[in-house]
Amino acid sequence: MSEKKIKKVFIEGAISPSCIADSIAKHSTKKDIGAHSIFLGQVRNDVINDKEVKAIEYTAYNEMAEEKFHEIRETAFEKYSLTCMHIYHSLGRVNSGEISLFVFTSSKHRKDAMEVCSYIVNRIKEEAPVWGKEIFEDESYIWKQNTP
């Protein structure tokens, strides 16, 4: 329990592909895993009023978000047959084309890994106190709104 509690979710800036690759590689020692499911959220260059989104800058209510991530993690372990899970979310500026959310679930069989991954992503979008500011090329911005 306490090991899960100290897991760090927030990463300053984009989540690098090499960090994702390392995370996958680390699981080769866990030989009871038969399925991994991965969700990667990438910053999209939406065009709003003729201006293209260049980056998203994320801020969070850190203290509350850490509690929420912990709660989501605990519930996921209760509801699904999971071997392990990892959640990483960016804070600060992430350019379009870069990764800002990485959810990685592993279980014996694919059904649990896939379902829980989707469950976690949905809960993060709905419940984590994180806000994204969409920044355009001229540095003007609007506050992002999540699609349901």
Binding site: K125, E126, P129, V130, W131, W143, K144, Q145
Partner: peptide, 10 residues
């Protein structure tokens, strides 16, 4: 007390 607009993480 925290004032929080709709979340937009991820």
């Amino acid at each position: 007390v925290a004032l929080m607009p709709p979340f937009s993480g991820g």
